[in-house]
Design a protein around this nucleic acid. Structure first.
Length: 319
DNA sequence: AATTAACACAACCGCAACTCA
DNA sequence: GTGAGTTGCGGTTGTGTTAAT
């Protein structure tokens, strides 16, 4: 089949959109809907390709787009979902109303990725480069953060394998999945929007209310046990603690955090600082990981992330 | 004041998936 | 079932802005 010619091959305009072009596009879509993106530019009188129009509309002109900086809550959600789903920006964006995949991708690449690296964590795998431990020393020093991310990564791989396996088994007509039949029938997203996600949010509120009257660090750890609370905890900690408490809190931080503190001092404005702390809290995880992961199994209802049928062997065979 | 570097984000490209005749 | 056409997605690049020298 012949690939649709690029804009430049048709002598169409490229580069930044002018306010006039924006107005034409918005007016046209308001009156007629976008219909076929390919025919839209001609019908609207724009010298752009349909692809460019679609991108401009979905990433910038759409009326429901939320502008402004990401909130700590959104940031936390992005980190958590990225840990689960990887670079599935569209799926992540679907969980953040008003945010576009492009915006989230840019935010990840310019802010969060950098912060991961400064913490010595691989932003792709959410794991420390030193894991898996190859020596007793390394093994004993495996950080809670690493264990946390390893757990999440395992969970992600298992669910992906399961999704593939079940997609194969049921084809595209399974009643179990959303009727759209689109790849959005992602188990993780279903989980995120299910009782489990709800439980996450409930625990988050409760734990955050506790943290304001107890030791910040110990509370943060118990809170992040559920993989949550970074932004809210941080906000509360910031509010409640004076300079002295802040230092005490930081003295408990890991070596990786020290690297972060040292290497990123140039950008240590209030927001960045608090966000770094948020990230660390989010990544932190207590040593009894099995318990945390059991949390899932107890809250999944008729959806199980770790079905009994999915043993390590079946996982391997399904991949 | 001029230049350079770093940053943020809009826009483009190419591929894969999807739809439909 | 097949292939042309269309759409959506993720990676990458380009451009404007701000900060540093």
């Amino acid at each position: 089949m012949g690939r649709a010619p690029c804009c430049d091959k048709q002598g169409l305009k490229r580069g930044p959109w002018t306010p006039e072009e924006d107005e034409i596009l918005v007016d046209y879509i308001r009156k007629n809907g976008h219909g076929s993106w390919r025919s839209l530019p001609k019908l609207a009188g724009l010298l752009r390709c349909g692809k460019s129009c679609r991108l401009r509309w979905t990433n910038y002109l759409r009326p429901d787009i939320k502008r402004g900086p990401f909130t700590l809550e959104e940031e936390k959600t992005i980190i958590q979902l990225h840990g689960i789903m990887g670079n599935r920006w569209a799926s992540i964006a679907a969980q953040l109303p008003g945010r576009t995949d492009n915006e989230i991708k840019n935010f990840w690449n310019t802010h969060l990725k950098k912060r991961f690296r400064s913490l010595g964590i691989n932003p792709h795998t959410h794991t420390s480069p030193s894991s898996p431990a190859s020596s007793p020393m390394q093994k004993s020093s495996t950080s809670p953060s690493t264990r946390h991310m390893t757990q999440w990564e395992s969970a992600r791989l298992e669910a992906e394998a399961r999704l593939s396996r079940e997609s194969y088994r049921f084809g595209s007509s399974q009643s179990d999945l959303p009727t759209s039949g689109k790849p959005d029938s992602d188990y993780f997203l279903r989980m995120w929007n299910s009782e489990v996600g709800e439980s996450f949010r409930r625990f988050q509120v409760r734990e955050t209310s506790l943290i304001t009257c107890q030791s910040p660090y110990s509370q943060a750890s118990s809170s992040t046990k559920l993989g949550l609370t970074s932004g809210m905890i941080n906000t509360e900690v910031k509010k409640e603690s004076d300079q002295h408490e802040e230092i005490d809190f930081r003295s408990c931080r890991s070596d990786a955090e020290d690297v972060m503190a040292g290497s990123d001092s140039s950008s240590s404005n209030e927001l960045d600082d608090s966000s770094d702390l948020s990230l660390q809290l989010l990544l932190d995880f207590p040593s009894n990981c099995d318990e945390e992961m059991n949390f899932f199994q107890g809250h999944l209802g008729n959806f199980s992330l770790f079905p009994n049928v999915l043993t390590e062997n079946s996982l391997n065979s399904s991949l």
